[in-house]
């Protein structure tokens, strides 16, 4: 018996490797995607090793160096490469620590939205009927509001702060996952392989998670990258409006909010945090475009 069953896992790994190679082939075709990936790797590195990379403590206030401009400007100081903010904190160090917050926010929000959305979408698509109707109408309601406004009101009621902001953004992003997963499940449900698994006695849970789910993942992954950038943008916007991370947290949106009053005096305190947000979001979106090319078989051929 063992002679017969043994080759199967081996075959599976080689097939996986082939799929991965094919994926990488299409992904690397897209130069932008590779650039996005490179940027992302750098950002992750900076975020993980922030305490080593950053020259200063992000909340240390140097009282003798308020609003010092970047090095290349008149009056710049080599201690503070990108200058300091209004209370003498090093901009570069704050930006580096900010990468931690943004990536952390992105991962947690997408994780929550993905887990909730895929689960609910699987249930709606698999059971259909009344369950489906109720769930989808609820999602319609969430989608009827502008997402930022809904998140804003939720945070206003739950209380401003990073955790509540993340929960609120996850809630407003989650309907997209529900819709996608449900549509994919409906598409797969009547395929022969699902029927045969059901006839073979697979439980609904097994069918949903093991049989159907892996075949719906492509669009969900693409949506996840889209949501990742949305999560970072929305969290920064909430921070900017005073509803997200609170000072002195070096979150980029919060930094922008603090910098607003110095807009005419110190361009660097306004420019750099936003540039950091833009670069991060751009990197993710570049990768997202590459992922879509690599995972969507319909576009592949064109």
């Amino acid at each position: 018996m063992s002679d017969i069953t043994n080759p199967t896992p081996k075959k599976e790994t080689s097939m996986r490797r082939r799929m991965l190679a094919e994926f990488w082939f299409y992904f690397s075709e897209n130069k932008g995607a590779v650039l996005g990936l490179a940027l992302m790797v750098i950002l992750i590195f900076i975020a993980v090793f922030a305490p080593i990379v950053a020259p200063h403590d992000p909340i240390q206030q140097y009282r003798d160096a308020l609003l010092v401009p970047p090095v290349w400007e008149d009056g710049g100081d080599w201690r503070f490469l990108l200058g300091t903010d209004a209370v003498g904190r090093d901009m570069l160090s704050r930006l580096i620590y900010g990468a931690r917050f943004s990536l952390f926010i992105g991962v947690v929000v997408v994780g929550l939205a993905l887990l909730g959305g895929v689960t609910v979408g699987l249930i709606a698509g698999y059971y259909r009927g009344a369950v489906d109707t109720v769930i989808m109408r609820m999602m319609d309601v969430i989608l009827a509001f502008p997402s930022l406004l809904l998140a804003l009101v939720m945070v206003a009621i739950l209380g401003p702060g990073l955790l509540n902001a993340m929960i609120a953004i996850a809630i407003v992003l989650q309907p997209h996952f529900v819709r996608l997963t449900r549509a994919a499940v409906l598409n797969e449900l009547n395929r022969d392989y699902v029927t045969s698994a059901r006839v073979a006695g697979a439980s609904p849970f097994y069918l949903m998670t093991r049989t159907i789910l892996p075949n719906c993942l492509g669009p969900v992954i693409v949506q996840a990258t889209l949501s990742f950038s949305n999560a970072i943008l929305d969290a920064a916007a909430l921070g900017f409006l005073g509803m997200g991370a609170q000072a002195p947290t070096p979150e980029w949106g919060t930094m922008l909010a603090e910098a607003r009053e110095f807009i005419s005096r110190a361009w660097w305190v306004v420019t750099f945090p936003g540039l950091a947000i833009l670069i991060t979001v751009l990197a993710i979106n570049l990768m997202g475009d590459g992922l879509r090319d690599a995972l969507d078989p319909k576009l592949k051929r064109s």
């Binding site: 950038s229 943008l233 920064a236 916007a237 900017f240 949106g253 922008l256 607003r260 807009i263 306004v270 420019t271 945090p273 936003g274 540039l275 947000i277 833009l278 979001v281 751009l282 993710i284 979106n285």
Partner: peptide, 12 residues
């Protein structure tokens, strides 16, 4: 443009 944090864009 699609990746732009518009609140920062406005300030800029």
């Amino acid at each position: 443009g699609y990746s732009m944090p518009i609140f920062w864009w406005g300030l800029l």
